[in-house]
Amino acid sequence: MYQFYKKKKKILVFIIIIVGFIFVFLDKIFQDHNPSCTVLYISIFYFTSISLGTLFFLGVQNISKSGWSVIIHPIMEEISSFIPYGCFMILIFLLLNAMDIVHIFHWMNSDLYNPISLKYDKIIANKKLFLNIPFFLIRSTIYVLLYSFFYLNIKKLSYKLYISYSLSDYKKLYNRSVIFVIFFSIISIFMIWDWIMSLNPHWFSTLFSWYVLSSFIITGISTITIVAIYLNNIGHFPLFNKNHLHDLSKYLFSGSLLWTYLWFSQFLLYWYGNIPEEIIYFIKREEIYNSIHFWMLIPNFLIPFFGLISSKSKSNYKIVFLVSLILLIGHYIDIYNLIAPDINSGVEFCIFEIIGFLLIIGGGFIYILFSNFNKRKFDSSTSEGNPFFQESKNYKYPYM
């Protein structure tokens, strides 16, 4: 059995994390202008969103009874393994903010609700029924507990199915996936309102949650693709071939189009309406980051569009790997752009700190992912118990 986590690989991951701390330290020495907690929060949210998007994609595959994807289900399950850790770290951030130790969520300042205070904000005060610390923390705790429950339950049922080969276990997995997809489609809207949109309580968008959710899905599929190609490249995932890669590429291609459609829909409505309370969202980002809101269309739309529009390109390992990596970078910029400008008066784009926290949290993400592969004794036949395994094993895209 191939061991993912030999001693050398463990050392490499720890080196990545240590290098991340060095980058953060260098940033504090040469560019001490941002509170580190902001970029740390963005990095944690980013990797958590990858895991959430992956679990959602897995749920969709289960309830649609897609045969082609069965051999990569174990990869999806293990990429989702960061959910309990990431959600717990976010919850810690929210608690620290509620205790006035960290200052990310501006609306948690009690003076904003006091009519006799000089900081009184009528707009925020009118939202007190929803934006109040106890209710906010209760909602967030529910998100964390339920996301973790569904992840652990779906993974447990999948593992049981892979051993038992039982149709009754498959039906349980199917039913649980249906419940999760319905739950996630609804509850993620509130989570995104709470964990991102409430950073600027003066602004709101009815499209915002769907826009962010599309980013979750794309980063999840990109990570699935990168991991699958890597495992195949080291000879540990031989059943994965160009036919499966082609279908993953189609999801990447269509997902980037969906994200772009929602991006354009939101921008077009605000530009057409020209309402000051709404367009401030774009104006602020244009002033702080020199119109990065438009520049990020290059990695998130143009490159995947032209890179994957050809059927031949969709089955090219190198092209798909590169496009997936670019999408991960592009959507980190998107998440950064969603969060950073709304904290205090805006957070400057500091490359040392960004790379540092990406390496720290990303190193932890990789450690958890491949440690779980090891514990599971993962190989290409792990999903044999699924009734669609043979279909996935022999899958051929009809037009290749």
Rank of each mutant, 00 (worst) to 15 (best):
Y2H: 15
Q3A: 13
I11W: 00
L12V: 02
I16P: 09
I16A: 09
L26W: 08
P35V: 13
S36R: 13
T38G: 10
Y46K: 05
Y46I: 01
S49F: 14
S51W: 06
S51V: 02
L52S: 07
T54E: 07
L55W: 09
L55P: 00
L58G: 06
L58Q: 11
S66Q: 00
W68D: 03
I72R: 04
I79A: 03
S80T: 08
F88P: 03
M89I: 14
L91Y: 11
L95A: 08
L95R: 02
M99Q: 08
H103Y: 05
W107A: 01
Y113V: 03
P115L: 06
P115T: 04
I116R: 05
Y120I: 10
D121L: 05
K122S: 15
N126C: 09
L129W: 11
F135T: 09
S140I: 09
T141L: 15
Y151R: 06
I154M: 15
K156C: 04
K156Q: 11
L161W: 03
Y165S: 03
S168P: 00
D169T: 02
K171Q: 14
L173N: 01
R176G: 06
I182W: 08
F184H: 11
I189P: 06
I192T: 11
M197R: 05
Y211F: 14
F216D: 12
T219L: 01
G220Q: 11
I221A: 00
S222C: 12
T225Q: 02
I234Y: 09
F237Y: 12
F240S: 01
N241C: 04
N241W: 03
D247M: 15
D247A: 04
L248H: 06
K250W: 13
Y261C: 05
F264D: 03
S265V: 08
N274W: 05
I280S: 14
I283M: 08
E286K: 11
E286F: 09
E286M: 10
E286N: 15
E287Q: 14
Y289Q: 09
I292F: 14
W295P: 02
F301V: 00
K314N: 07
V320E: 08
L322D: 04
L327H: 00
L327Q: 07
Y336I: 06
A340D: 11
A340C: 08
D342P: 01
I343P: 04
C350L: 13
C350K: 12
F357V: 08
L359N: 12
F365A: 02
F370H: 01
N372Q: 05
R376S: 02
E384H: 12
G385I: 07
S392P: 09
Y395Q: 01
K396V: 15
K396A: 06
Y399P: 01
